[in-house]
């Protein structure tokens, strides 16, 4: 049975099919599938009427709204900042470029709790940046801007790292042709370069958005977690758990899970589009 599963005769030579596939399936089932199934079962157990009542309660709606709004702001920032970074790192040479490139990995490497702690202190009234912003009447900590800032920090690398390789692989012939034909630099960027990096850019933005919706560690520090104002959905689910309201927690978590899976689907489609684009 197992030998038949491998169609190419030569591949039957290799050992370890049962062992490796068995280990993989066991690990995935125990560590990922069963726990996720537990959430889905719990969600199904609640029943549609109560489920709807939980996720449309004013506090839950406010939490979803805060999460979505801040994630949109964070993603818009990263869409522009990420594009700028990818462009500068690929197209220009300057001292410290390699360091700047390496710095793009910091938000991934740094534990989110550490990022949250530092951003909170930095932007609070007596921090380096907050001390300068507060007199201008701009408060970041304990506002939705703080939530967006934490989301933006933790998802910085996604757009840069998706656009960078595509930009590196671009065929310079099109740009040269456009330049020879007298196109302005802006026209070359917007009509020749941008359409080619668009799929990768959108894919990066989608992943950044998904990551922002799920972010927790950095946000709990900076948000102040005021119900109806700066309370994010993930935190509300956490609070429901601490109140032993398992139904409430499961319903909110399930909505976030559905969001995540839909965004995963979209980003996969975008990446497939980006690959096709590259092939053409």
């Amino acid at each position: 049975m197992i030998v038949q599963a491998a169609p190419i005769r030569a591949k039957r030579v290799l050992p370890g099919f049962t062992l490796s596939l068995g280990t993989t399936l066991l690990y995935l089932t125990v560590i990922i599938l069963i726990p996720v199934l537990a959430l889905i079962l719990k969600g199904a157990e609640i029943g549609p009427t109560r489920f709807w009542a939980i996720v449309t309660s004013p506090r839950a709606l406010a939490a979803f709204q805060v999460t979505l709004t801040a994630a949109v702001v964070a993603t818009l920032f990263n869409a522009i900042y990420g594009l700028l970074m990818a462009w500068v790192l690929v197209r220009h040479d300057f001292p410290g470029k390699r360091l700047l490139d390496a710095l793009m990995d910091i938000p991934f490497a740094l534990p989110t709790a550490v990022a949250g702690l530092s951003l909170t202190a930095l932007f609070s009234a007596n921090g380096w940046i907050g001390a300068w912003l507060e007199p201008q009447g701009i408060s970041v900590v304990y506002t939705i801007w703080g939530v967006a800032l934490a989301m933006a920090f933790t998802s910085v690398p996604f757009v840069v790292r998706s656009v960078q390789p595509v930009l590196e692989d671009l065929d310079p012939a099109y740009e040269q042709a456009a330049r020879t034909l007298g196109a302005s630099e802006w026209a070359i960027f917007s009509r020749v370069v941008f359409p080619q990096i668009l799929p990768a850019w959108l894919a990066g933005c989608t992943i950044a958005f998904a990551r922002s919706l799920g972010e927790f560690g950095a946000i709990v520090f900076i948000a102040g977690n005021i119900p109806m104002q700066t309370e994010i959905a993930a935190l509300l689910a956490f609070i429901r758990l601490e109140e032993f309201d398992y139904n409430g927690a499961a319903a909110i978590a399930l909505v976030l899970l559905i969001f995540a899976l839909v965004l995963l689907f979209i980003s996969n489609r975008l990446q497939a589009w980006a690959l096709r684009h590259k092939a053409v």
Partner: peptide, 22 residues
């Protein structure tokens, strides 16, 4: 399936485990 944990927020993972083993 192997890539699933990348798209699921860790806090949801935690909730899944609590709903299983809690």
């Amino acid at each position: 399936a192997i890539e699933i944990p990348f798209s699921i927020s860790p806090i949801i993972a935690g909730i899944c485990y609590l709903l299983l083993y809690g």
